[in-house]
Write a protein that binds this DNA or RNA. Sequence first.
DNA 1: GTCTATACACCGATAGAC
DNA 2: GTCTATCGGTGTATAGAC
Lengths: 194, 194
Amino acid sequence: MEVTPPRRRMGSPDSAVSNQLLDATERVMREEGYAAATSRRIAEEAGLKQQLVYYYFETMDDLLLAAFKRRTSRALERIDEEAASRQPIQTIWESWNSTVDAKLVFEFFALANHHDGVREEVNRFMAAARRKHAEAIARQVDEHGLDLGPFSPEALSFMLFSTALLLGREEAMGLTIGHTDVRKLFDWGIARIG
Amino acid sequence: MEVTPPRRRMGSPDSAVSNQLLDATERVMREEGYAAATSRRIAEEAGLKQQLVYYYFETMDDLLLAAFKRRTSRALERIDEEAASRQPIQTIWESWNSTVDAKLVFEFFALANHHDGVREEVNRFMAAARRKHAEAIARQVDEHGLDLGPFSPEALSFMLFSTALLLGREEAMGLTIGHTDVRKLFDWGIARIG
DNA sequence: GTCTATACACCGATAGAC
DNA sequence: GTCTATCGGTGTATAGAC
């Protein structure tokens, strides 16, 4: 009968300091990579003492997971708001392009390769986003008698995400070969569907 | 006048041991992430002493870069061979799907966020692959009077890579929503073009 | 070419005072 | 809630013997 193991005392997960630490974690991960997201480096970035990290988070793994969960819960709120859009496909495309922090996403995706908690949360978020987007697209297709051509709502949901993410990554890295053509292609296709 | 700084003596970059270390580096990065790619962990994985790493590579950054360069030089050879294919689009699609080690690619892409040498090498490789693929596609379009529809060769080159990479990543993570639809979509589109 | 030994920085995490 | 002090472990990298 697994009982909660003995723990040291801890602070509120929604406190101001806790959020400062999560902000600092995002900055460090974006600029220096997940390997640099240590308790010392994050505390320094937040202007706090290293040991405070362990007052607000059980372990470093917990802190990293909390940082990702804060992002996904905000993103899911946004997705729910946008689901009611009059032109969901256009809205989804613009939303991924403007909100996806590609460098950070690649750090979290790499982290997910070997961090069980983060992987589960990435999968949970990606599954929810894909389903919600596919439903919003399918609803609009029904209501307005649109023609998606060879795209299923799920396939379109996948393509909008994967394309925006890779375009964002390459732009952040200074590589843009074919990008104007791809953006024209998506603008054309989205306008064509309605 | 920058002179090569004084260095400790070093072994051949093409030796058997050197390649064992690069093999071990790939395994560690794939299974445990780039943060685990330390001299101790890699040497242990290769069954060698930690200090040997510094006989074959100047620094850990050099080792990581060498590991990535070995992959890209092999991949570019393959791309050159496949450029002569009778059906380059089909060949490129199948090649990305069968050769891209998605977990490892995400580790190197995340590493590229903050490792200058790796970023430059990633950009060099991606630019070369995109151009070579676009040229192969354009040549085939010319010779056989194909119709790419709204796709430019560069845009198609981009989409084949980004889609195969993200499909591969999600499959490796156990997430497959919409995948059969996306694969059907690409099979259909590629068959349609010719 | 590979070994032993080692310097020194940084890591996660805890104990207990204030 | 935040502090000082500290533990044991691991990191990169070097020196020099064999």
